[in-house]
Structures are given as structure tokens and as C-alpha cells.
Design a protein around this nucleic acid. Structure first.
Lengths: 339, 339
DNA sequence: AGCTTTTGTGCATACGTTTGCAAATCAGCT
DNA sequence: AGCTGATTTGCAAACGTATGCACAAAAGCT
């Protein structure tokens, strides 16, 4: 019965009539301890309600079993769901998640790095946040593996996990062309991010193979308001588009809202295709045709890559790309049968 | 230039020509240290890239400056946004967030408690997750403050921050009555949660004052599928309702999707009112009339309550309720002018 | 200058663990 | 019984910091 104050391994040792080391060994998986004493210790621990202090353990072993997770925005549904899955996956591996919110202010990440290092995290996952070279260097210096989730940084020597964004853009191009669209515009993801650039490039390449070019390209910055404005601009023009590929679902919803507010029908007047396949894309109000980022596989690849790098610091960075299938729904006109 | 390995206060001390204690004092806000030596130490720290080890600091002070944040689901947009704000608010106060995902399996929370205690968190915030008496007791034993966000546990002696849910339900009742609705149904939040019960009770009381009773009550369990099924059931009946108050926005969206799929128009055929006012409620596709939970004020109250309890463990629990205004949009028929 | 009061510093201990090492116990043999 | 080898155990030293205590240095005063 613990009145107050922390219960330590000493207390348990005293009650069980063994040394403190013995207690430690009982709670250390690989250690050598006789079944009989283990039983005594476990009994004592249970009555006192003892749990080893993870912080003290981290000090001595040099492994905190904490992963720093840095996220910029949570209003795009893709990220909450990703966090949920990442967190579950890491919990299952015995790691814990220290959550950091970063604005996209570049200085912000540097400040967060201080906290991350101070808490001796074993590894870092960043989701949709820009990494300066300084941050990269400090991670390398401290020997802390970092994996970028859903964003790459070519030439940075950092691991990343993304979907096959360029290929995804290509698939959209082919699909829209097959559907008979002539004037295909792109409201892109932020061109400062690999994710945004690659999707745009894929679309352009896909159209080029048919001898076409995008009817228009506008940087939507992954921002709803920007995307909505872009949609209005595209349709107000004397030569409006007949299909819009939007850089992610989050913007695509804003685009559809905006089109409907203009009295246009989707997909009769204009087709819309998104990217991500967040749960909301399947909801009746949008029924969005989109490219699915296979979240579970991306999450699995992320923790696998990160843990591999933690276990073997000599292992180099790797950039994983996961195939992203096109999901057909009602927001884009379908190709004719038998094409 | 750090080649590898952690830089400790010892290293800095050596370089600066002072004792390790001096270095510690420079990084401890209230401590007594001469400006001159502070400067020397800071310089040495900067060239070595030194940051105090938070884990070691936590060991000695007994304060980890870590808050455990336990969340059940992230698919309801209310919670991601809440997490974002909570995290920012805590970061601003020098705390950090250890994130735990809990299923609503009651045993799950007990297991998480082990981890929370092992990491010596200074406090716990739970968002929409059930707390067993056992968990309550263990927190009390360990002297760890806990505040429940967006859920209360009457008689548990636990702090909580919610909106004024019952009053909110009342407001909806009055508003729908004023709008001339006769058959008002409720697809409630989970009746196992105070939040769901209080909103339902408010509606019932509000209708009772006008001598009415709900036309129907169905427990939607905060679940989209359940809510959609409930909506179909309500409208398929020989005596369909003319207004549905839904226990939260997340379910309300499913209800609207479901109604539209039946060929019904919102609000011409049936009015829908939600609860939360998540960002999505303002989007064109739903334009949902709803009760706004003032997120910023709830978050502020939560961290204020928690930190007050951390600073003064003797302070008792308190249940904060924050007024929740009704936000009028297009999903519910408005009362006549001049009523 | 001599005294007292304030301020700054170093020494040493403590926080709660893990783990190498050596001593001690135990089991398995002849 | 005596020896060998394997297993279990306790001792003590770490990990990197904060902090009480004693003392040194500086500052304030008449």
C-alpha cells in the first residue's frame, strides 16, 4: 500500500529480501535470474505497485525509447489519421511519441530541435515540415535518425517515405485524358515541397506523352483559401477548364465547394480529382475521385525504416516510395466503356 | 566541434574553466551566478553545442515537464484541432506532450497508465476516453493531476473541462421550436459519456418547457455509421421527423449525407443541427448549423487547471463549464423574422 | 582599514536505474 | 566426498544533472 512518493527498486528489494540489482534484472528481459527469486520480486512489486522509472533507465542505457514526432498542421485530415496510425505502430514496438507542433516558419524547427535533443529522443519523424540543412547536420552530429513522412528532401541524405507521387500524377493525366478531357488544369500542392512538385511533374509528363500541356498551373500551397481562389480564377476565364487535378484532397474539397458556389456541377461541368484519399473523400457530400496514399503501408515503412536506423546507426538513409492507386468515385467523368 | 557522443555539463565546465555546478546554475533560471562566468559558460556551451539533458534534470528535480495526452480517436476533426491547440499551449508553458492513443477498451487505459507512470509525467490530459476508478486511484496515489477534456465524470473527484452541454442542448431545443418544428428527434452522442448525456438532457428539458417531448431518441454512439442508420430509420418511419439534433458534428455530416442519399433536402425537408462547430461545419458542402464549443477557451482552461494542480497538489479538482453559442448556418430552417 | 553583509563558487551527494565483475551457490559428475 | 562448470547474486560504479552546505570573494558601511 503506497501512501505517497515514488516506489523504487530499493523498496521492492527490501520487501522481497533481495538486492536492488536482482529487482532490476527481473524487469530486464534478457537478464539472468532464478525463477524462484523472480517470483518473489514480482509479488513484492505487485503489492507495492512498482514500475521501473523509464527516465532513470534511459539515462543509464542511453536509449529513451522516445520518438519525436513533428507535425505542422492538423487540419488536413491526412495527418491526424497518420499520427494515429504512427502512434499505434510505435506503441506496439515499445516506443513512445513525444509530439511537437511546428509552424512552417523555418526558425521554428530549429527551436524544436533543441527540445528534441534535450529529451534524448531515439529518433525523429517529421510530417510535412521543412528541414533546414542546419537541422540535418545537428541530427547527424547527435547521431539521431530522422525519417520524413510524406515528403522528401532530394540530396539531403535523409530517409523519407512517400507515395509514388510522380507516378500518381501520371495516372491522373491518363485517366482524365481517357475521359475525354481537353483542358486539364492543375491546382498544385506547394511547390516548395517535393510532394507538391512530384505530383505536378507527373501530371505534366503524362500529358506530354499525349502531346498536351496543362491548361493552367496554379500553386495552391496546400491551402484551402488559395485553392478556392484558384478554382474561381480558372472558371471565370474566357476559356474555362474542363478538369482540375488538385494537389491534395484537403484543397480539392475547397475547390468543389467553390465550384458549386459558382453554380457549376461536378463532374458534369468540370471534373475534379484529388490526392490522398482521406476518409472524408468517400463521404457523400464530395464523393471524390482521388489517388490513394496507402497510409498503413506508408506508416509501416516509416517505423521500419526508423527503427532499422536506430538499431544500426551505420545504415544509410533510404527513400521509400509506395505505389498509389487511383480510386474512382463520382467527382470526375469516367472514360467510355470499352476504351 | 562535437565528433560524437553526448556533450555533458562536465565538458562545458572544463572548457569554460569552471565547475560543473556553475554550468548547471547558468541553465537554471533562478540560480545565483555572476554575469561574467555566465558569459564564459554560455560561450563554451555554444561552441560545444551543449543543451542540458532533460531526462537527468527530471530525475533530480522530480519534475519531467512532460504531460501525458491520451486520445481515443482522431477521425472526428474536433480532436486533432484540440490536440494542436493543446500542444501549442503546453509548449508555450515549457511543457511537452507525450501522446498516447487509446482504444475505448477499458483495459487499454489501465495499460497506458503503466507507461504514463513509468515516464514520470507531471500531469495527464484525457480527451474523450473513459476512466476507470482504478485509474483514478492510481493517479491519486502517484499524486499525478488529471484533467478530462470534453468529458466529465461526475462524482469521480476528477477535474474536467467541457462546454455547457446541457445548456447547449436547451438552446437547440428553443431554436428549433422557434423555427416551427413539431417533431424534433435526437441522434444522441454516446449515452455512456457525460457529454452525450448532458446534450440529450438539455434538449429534453428545453422541449419539456414547451410541453413537448422528443419525437425520437436514438443513441448514435458518436459513430458515423450508427448515425446514418438512425437517420434512415427516422425518415423511413410513417411519421418522419422534421428536425434532427445530432450529438456532434462528426455524426451530423453522416446524417446529412444519408438524408441526401434518400433524396431529401436539408433544410427544406428536414433541419439538421450539430454540436462542436468543427472547421468543416463551415464548409460549403454542409453549411451546418451547430453549437460551437469554444476550443481556445476550453484549451486554455484545461492547461490552466492542470498546471494549477501541478503547482499546488493540495488544490482540489474543479469542473469547468464554458458557454457554447449556437451558430446559425444553412442546415436548419430559421425562425420567422420578428418573433 | 576593519568590520559586516551580500554574492558567487566548488565540493560532494542524491536521483533510480543498468551492468561488469567477482563471489557464492547449485547441480552434475566420477 | 570432491571437483568442475554453469548459474545466480550482490557490490559498486556509472549516467548527467540539481542543490545544500561551507567557504571564498566582493561589496557596503562607518
Amino acid at each position: 500500500m503506497s501512501i505517497a512518493g515514488r516506489i523504487t527498486a530499493q523498496d521492492v528489494a527490501k520487501l522481497a529480501g533481495v538486492s536492488q540489482s536482482a529487482v532490476s534484472r527481473v524487469f530486464t528481459p534478457g537478464a539472468s535470474v532464478a525463477p524462484k527469486t523472480a517470483a518473489k520480486v514480482r509479488a513484492a512489486a505487485k503489492t507495492l505497485g512498482y514500475r521501473p522509472n523509464s527516465l532513470a533507465r534511459a539515462m543509464i542505457t542511453g536509449k529513451s525509447r522516445i520518438i519525436g514526432l513533428v507535425v505542422a498542421y492538423l487540419d488536413n485530415q491526412f495527418y491526424p489519421v497518420a499520427i494515429e496510425k504512427l502512434s499505434h505502430a510505435l506503441q506496439a514496438k515499445g516506443y513512445h511519441v513525444l509530439l511537437f507542433m511546428a509552424s512552417n516558419d523555418p526558425g521554428e524547427m530549429d527551436r524544436l530541435m533543441d527540445d528534441l535533443l534535450a529529451y534524448q529522443v531515439d529518433g525523429i519523424i517529421t510530417a510535412s515540415v521543412a528541414i533546414s540543412n542546419d537541422v540535418t547536420r545537428r541530427c547527424a552530429d547527435a547521431g539521431i535518425p530522422l525519417v520524413m513522412f510524406n515528403r522528401g528532401q532530394p540530396g539531403s541524405g535523409l530517409s523519407s517515405v512517400t507515395s509514388a507521387n510522380a507516378l500518381g500524377g501520371r495516372k491522373v493525366a491518363e485517366f482524365l485524358l481517357a475521359g475525354g478531357h481537353q483542358r486539364i488544369a492543375h491546382i498544385s500542392g506547394w511547390q516548395g515541397a517535393s510532394t507538391g512538385r512530384d505530383r505536378a511533374r507527373g501530371l505534366i509528363e503524362g500529358l506530354a506523352e499525349a502531346g498536351l500541356a496543362p491548361h493552367a498551373m496554379i500553386d495552391g500551397m496546400f491551402n484551402r483559401d488559395k485553392a478556392a481562389a484558384a478554382a474561381r480564377e480558372l472558371m471565370d476565364s474566357p476559356d474555362p477548364t474542363d478538369a482540375i487535378f488538385v494537389g491534395n484532397d484537403h484543397m480539392a474539397f475547397a475547390v468543389i465547394d467553390s465550384l458549386r458556389a459558382m453554380g457549376l456541377r461536378v463532374p458534369q461541368d468540370v471534373s475534379v480529382v484529388g490526392y490522398d484519399d482521406v476518409p472524408m473523400a468517400a463521404w457523400g457530400a464530395y464523393d471524390l475521385t482521388t489517388v490513394r496514399q496507402p497510409l498503413v503501408r506508408m506508416v509501416d515503412a516509416t517505423v521500419e525504416t526508423l527503427l532499422a536506423q536506430i538499431d544500426d546507426p551505420a545504415r544509410g538513409a533510404q527513400a521509400v516510395e509506395i505505389d498509389a492507386p487511383l480510386i474512382l468515385r463520382g467527382s470526375a467523368r469516367l472514360p467510355e466503356e470499352g476504351t
